[in-house]
């Protein structure tokens, strides 16, 4: 009886330990070394970290991560808005819901390509539309002040779709009796939404928050595809800068790259800690 759960757990835990848990600790260790990935590694203590402090590219990446985090959260209200818009029962609404959701199914690589073409100064649809309204053409991804926002907008597309589907499911489960009761009390529109509906959508909001934060901090594919960190390194984020340092033509600085990864991990850990704490409370309340 006591060995049985162990046997069931063994293969999964073993895999997870070897590929996920142990590498986290190894990365911490590697971040204390100067290592090109092939030759001998030399211990340098916290030197990689002190180098980070004066690294302009690191600073830009960190700031871009903040922009990603803040702006990515727009996916949550946007998703709620579309969900409210689509929460009707008219002919063909199911197909509409699926088609609104469908950007989420595309790989980030394809989303990145689709949006880079959308932004193209000459061939892109964005400038065709702007031109139609008499506005001048802009080169979103070629402009260091605009590029990051352009990429975030591309990321918001599938992320909003994800939040939308969470809220559609949540809205489905909103207690109709409470709505009716509130309606009899004269609650309408915005008040109804804020005081009656949104509190009931809490579980959906929590998940939307978790996946959006994680998504924002994991952003890599879009940057790699759309600008490759440019122009002039203005669109780098920590995840991308780490990859550049450790594994690209800029050299194989595994130690320095790992130090960046550790910083990113620590930022993520704040959120992970909060998520786990919420889930832990939930578990204890529900019990068995």
């Amino acid at each position: 009886m006591t060995v049985t759960p162990l046997l069931f757990l063994l293969p999964g835990v073993l895999f997870f330990a070897v590929y996920v848990v142990i590498p986290i600790f190894q990365s911490f260790q590697i971040s204390l070394y100067d290592w090109d990935g092939l030759g001998e590694a030399t211990y340098v203590g916290l030197e990689n970290y002190s180098e980070l402090v004066g690294d302009r590219a690191f600073e830009i990446s960190l700031w871009n991560n903040v922009k990603w985090l803040v702006l990515y959260l727009l996916a949550i209200p946007a998703g709620l808005f579309i969900a409210l818009f689509l929460n009707q029962t008219v002919a063909g609404i199911r197909l509409y819901k699926s088609l609104f959701f469908f950007p989420f199914v595309l790989s980030q690589v394809v989303v990145g390509l689709v949006f880079s073409w959308f932004y193209l100064p000459r061939e892109g649809l964005l400038n065709a539309v702007l031109g139609f309204f008499g506005a001048g053409s802009i080169n979103v991804l070629g402009d260091p002040t605009l590029a990051t926002y352009g990429i975030i907008a591309a990321g918001l597309w599938p992320q909003t779709a994800y939040c939308m589907i969470l809220y559609l499911t949540g809205l489905n489960a909103v207690d109709p009796e409470q709505i009716e009761a509130a309606r009899l009390d004269g609650a309408k529109g915005r008040h109804m939404l804020w005081y009656v509906v949104i509190p009931q959508l809490r579980p959906a909001t929590f998940i939307a928050f978790v996946v959006t934060i994680i998504g924002a901090l994991r952003s890599f594919d879009l940057i790699s595809i759309m600008t490759n960190g440019g122009p002039f390194g203005s669109t780098r984020v920590l995840s991308f800068y780490m990859f550049e340092q450790a594994l690209s033509e800029y050299g194989f600085r595994m130690g320095y790259g790992s130090a960046i990864a550790v910083v990113l991990f620590m930022i993520m850990l704040v959120f992970i800690g909060y998520f786990l704490w919420s889930m832990w409370n939930e578990e204890r309340q529900s019990g068995h």
Partner: peptide, 21 residues
């Protein structure tokens, strides 16, 4: 909770050791 937490970590913290392995 170890499984849940591991699921949230940034890929970059795994990259060098996993590639090495």
């Amino acid at each position: 909770f170890m499984f849940i937490a591991g699921n949230f970590v940034p890929f970059q913290i795994l990259m060098v050791p996993v590639r090495d392995l």
